[in-house]
Amino acid sequence: MPKKIHVQAVINGQPMDFLCEPRQSLLEVLRDELRLTGSKEGCNNGNCGACNVLLDGRLVNSCLVFGAEVQGKAVTTIEGIATAQGLHPLQQKFLEHAALQCGICTPGFIVAAKALLEKNPKPSEEQVRHWLAGNLCRCTGYDKIIRAVLDAARLGS
């Protein structure tokens, strides 16, 4: 078995150490080593966005990042979006708009939408659709997801 690498990173605000094989993706590390299973695997090749996380604030597919690459970096996963004060406005709006059915794509959509609203707090519908085109949802037809994101933007999240 390949020798494991020692990695230090800040995961959801908390400094963490982990060991990973060089070939393990960040998604595998999050799910299998750190047991943060909120990031989902839909394709493992960057097509679906279910594994979206923020890496130093930038939206990435965690299946396309090696675990060893996050040394010294900050990772935000879906588990790091809500706080002790409650849900993030995006999470609340996803619930109010019934923007999820099976829910498997939801973590990725919420992380991606958070990245959008941080970059562009008042996006148009077209801009939301464009930004979220890297996230596949097979249940909703996207309608309620787009409305939830636009509504969260109106709240000024």
């Binding site: 989902k40 849900l87 829910g103 498997i104």
Partner: peptide, 10 residues
């Protein structure tokens, strides 16, 4: 489901 806590098969 919006916080990533829901447990799916995988």
């Amino acid at each position: 489901k919006v916080t990533g806590r829901a447990l799916y098969g995988a």
